Amino acid sequence: MALIHPSAIVDPKAQLDSSVEVGAFSIIGPHVRIGARSVIGPHVVIEGHTTIGEDNKFFQFSSIGAAPQDKKWAGEATRLEVGDRNTVREFCTFNTGTVQDAGVTRLGNDNWISAYVHLAHDCQVGSNTIFSNNAQLAGHVVVGDWAILSGYAGVHQFCKIGEHAFVGMYTSLTQDVPPFVLVSGNPAGARGVNIEGIKRRGFTRPQIDAIRTAYKTVYRSGLTLEEAKAALAGQAASEELDADGAAHVRAFCDFLETASRGIVR
Rank of each mutant, 00 (worst) to 15 (best):
L3Y: 14
I4R: 07
A8Y: 03
V10T: 04
V10F: 03
P12D: 15
A14W: 02
L16E: 03
D17E: 12
V22C: 02
G23K: 09
S26C: 08
I28L: 07
P30G: 05
I34R: 00
P42C: 10
H49R: 13
T51N: 04
E54R: 14
N56W: 02
K57Y: 15
F58W: 11
I64T: 05
Q69S: 11
A77G: 12
T78Q: 06
V82W: 01
V88N: 06
E90F: 11
F94N: 02
F94E: 03
G97A: 06
T98R: 04
G103F: 09
L107H: 04
L107S: 06
D110S: 11
W112P: 00
I113N: 01
S114L: 14
Y116C: 09
L119P: 01
H121L: 08
C123V: 07
F131G: 00
V142M: 08
D145Y: 06
W146D: 10
W146A: 05
S150K: 02
S150I: 00
G154T: 05
F158P: 01
C159H: 05
E163N: 12
V167A: 00
P178R: 02
F180G: 06
P187D: 05
V193N: 01
E196T: 14
G202K: 09
F203I: 08
Q207F: 03
R212T: 09
T213A: 13
A214G: 13
K216A: 13
Y219I: 09
S221Y: 06
S221D: 09
L223R: 13
T224F: 05
L232V: 06
A237W: 05
S238I: 13
D242E: 11
D244W: 12
G245Y: 02
A247R: 13
V249D: 08
F252T: 01
D254M: 10
F255W: 07
T258R: 15
S260M: 07
V264H: 01
